[in-house]
Design a binder for these strands. Structure first.
Lengths: 210, 210
DNA sequence: ATTTGTTTGTGAAATAAATAACAATATGTA
DNA sequence: TACATATTGTTATTTATTTCACAAACAAAT
């Protein structure tokens, strides 16, 4: 079965919310409560949860720990997955800080920069390699996911090199649009585009409900 | 007429691509060519362009300059819109760098931080205010859009304060999910969630076409 | 002049996604 | 025991989005 990007996105969201609940020592939760935390409808939550194959109870809803375990089982490679970060400017550094220690199975294991002062340092357990070693290191560490955090121009060539080194999935923070094979996943996160969208809706969403 | 978020997103993308074409001195473009640049179907491009009310020619397609002008007219407030940036850590700094000089009508006009060493500095024409002045400054400058670039905990309270000061639209880079009135636009950009999604598709998108 | 080839704009059709609806289930209560 | 209440999983329905398909337009070729 092919599962849509939207459903995956929401499952990741539910997982995050369930983690919060777990920390607050909540044991059980109903679909309508999880829905409200996720700003979705209860029906949608139940429908989404069908794909992970965990059944709740009509009396007490979903058991938080169990549901969390099921979602994680569904979403993640048990052996873990490694991520590369290209570009260690302010943005790259922020991403590294932000993601550090947040996920047991997914870790940023290598980063790349051309600045010799940064190369060979280790930040949050992540070694900095020279950009020239991108292919070698990516293959060696069997990295499948990469984050592009360089300002602009050569994003496409970096992306090509990553894909040629075995990467299957990219997050692109550069303003350059990437053209890649169809079986590669790309998430574009152009920051200016986000601001423009927000600006548009600041004007138009004033009265109408979303 | 109510226009979906998806269409707005694509219009912003077309605009960006058209700007590139303009810089390359391309005068006219067909829907199928623009579609290919945007990785969409020609029919979708034509359908999207209906909302901006600019008609192409069956002979030479769309006139790049004219179409660009029409999209901009549709998307932007002619008097310009001001954006606030909350948090001047690595991420905030990256956003400021990245957005500087990219848009004639949308500018990051104020930023907020609690670090006294940063307060009152001016970066890329953007003055840094103390976080305590958030309400006052936001109202004074008539800021409608804000970017939350603080690590975590108090993102909700910052968001509430922004909305109370007239902000209608937020971009949230914090991992905290925000709960706000329905007539406020929020774009969540949790970086870890993006990585998790990419990791999932790195595993599953290996053979099936997207 | 007529034909050929190409493209646009848009109504109609198809596909995808979200919501509604409800049988099945279990609990507590009278 | 029978009844009222609440929730799940899933099918059916509705709504949203995308694609198809084609008339209208028009330049170039015959």
């Amino acid at each position: 079965m092919i599962i849509s990007e939207k459903i995956i996105h929401r499952l990741i969201l539910y997982k995050k919310l369930l983690k919060n609940l777990q920390n607050e020592n909540v044991k059980n939760i109903f679909s309508h409560k999880l829905a409200s935390l996720a700003s979705r409808s209860p029906a949608q939550v139940r429908r989404d949860l069908m794909v992970v194959g965990y059944d709740g109870s009509t009396v007490s809803g979903y058991h938080v720990d169990e549901l969390l375990k099921s979602i994680e089982l569904f979403l993640y490679e048990p052996e873990g997955q490694k991520v590369a970060l290209v570009g260690l400017g302010n943005l790259g550094r922020a991403i590294l800080d932000y993601c550090y220690g947040r996920h047991p199975n997914i870790t940023i294991s290598a980063s790349f920069d051309k600045d010799p002062n940064k190369v060979n340092r280790v930040i949050h357990g992540c070694r900095v390699y020279h950009i020239d070693d991108l292919e070698k290191t990516t293959r060696q560490l069997k990295i499948e996911v990469a984050i592009i955090a360089i300002p602009t121009e050569n994003a496409q060539s970096i992306a090509d090199r990553l894909i040629n080194s075995g990467v299957r999935s990219l997050i692109n923070y550069s303003p350059t649009r990437l053209y890649l094979p169809l079986d590669v996943y790309v998430e574009n996160r152009d920051m200016m585009m986000a601001v423009e969208k927000a600006a548009y809706f600041a004007r138009t969403l004033k009265d109408e409900l979303k």
